[in-house]
């Protein structure tokens, strides 16, 4: 079986600024890959390229053996398979929680309203938010919003989830509830590519940790090795800076 998600020598420019400089990366099915790296190294850009919110200029991205970058790709079909959750501004503020979750299943998958609600019911129950289904996002805490955003992506039954620093806009006490949910998904075998600053979390759930530096993969490996014994000096410096920042 070939690699589930495969990036082959991906280059991405914003004008003259080369943000991804030849990234090659594989994610197997049921694997959780964590992307770490300093701010501006291209983590968000990489994730956005995977579900074609950004076009790449060179290289190729394959999902389950099929090319999903470049011309001729059915973007809507790709995005049904790949869910993404951003740092913030995920939920639609003019819709209730329930409508947020059922919108895509009814409009894209053409599910019956009642089937979509059933699906949403199961998912919202899981995160204890079914009671809040009629609330608007502004009334929810940041942690609740992010969990609803995850569940909304799950309602499309994606085969791959991309999470882009989904806890970094949250108050510290709300981080845990969101990470717990992601940890559960990982244990259930959801394939995920996660950009994160939460090193403890990465160590717990990741099958592989990838250190991105200035648009290139500096180093990749299993979490134990990456956190205990990184080969690259840059990785070491980065991890040290994170630890120091946490202490302060």
């Amino acid at each position: 079986m070939s690699t589930f998600l495969e990036l082959i020598d991906v280059h991405k420019y914003f004008g003259d600024n080369e943000v991804l400089r030849g990234v090659s990366l594989g994610v197997e099915e049921h694997q959780v890959v964590c992307l770490i790296g300093p701010s501006g190294c291209g983590k968000s850009t990489l994730l956005r390229c995977v579900n074609a919110l950004e076009m790449i200029q060179q290289g190729e991205i394959r999902l389950d053996g099929e090319r999903v970058s470049g011309r001729g790709v059915d973007l809507n079909a790709l995005r049904q398979d790949v869910g993404i959750v951003f740092q913030s501004f995920n939920l639609f503020p003019h819709m209730s929680v329930l409508d947020n979750v059922t919108l895509a299943p009814t409009k894209v998958l053409k599910l019956h309203q009642s089937d979509a609600v059933d699906r949403a019911h199961a998912l919202l129950d899981r995160i204890g938010m079914w009671e809040k289904r009629d609330d608007y996002p502004d009334r929810l805490s940041g942690g609740q919003q992010q969990r609803v955003a995850i569940v909304r992506a799950l309602a499309m039954q994606p085969r791959l989830m991309l999470l882009d620093e989904i806890t970094s806009a949250l108050d510290p006490e709300l981080v845990a509830e969101v990470l717990t949910l992601v940890g559960e998904l990982a244990r259930e075998g959801m394939t995920m590519l996660i950009a994160t600053h939460e090193m403890g979390f990465a160590r717990d759930v990741a099958s592989k940790v990838v250190f991105l530096y200035a648009g290139q993969i500096e180093e990749a490996g299993p979490p134990d090795q990456m956190f205990r014994d990184p080969h690259s000096e840059r990785t070491r410096t980065f991890l040290r800076s994170i630890i120091e920042a946490k202490r302060m």
Partner: peptide
């Protein structure tokens, strides 16, 4: 990011 969120859910 509202459009991005909608597009990423597969909406046309």
């Amino acid at each position: 990011s509202q459009s991005a969120a909608a597009r990423s859910l597969g909406l046309s």
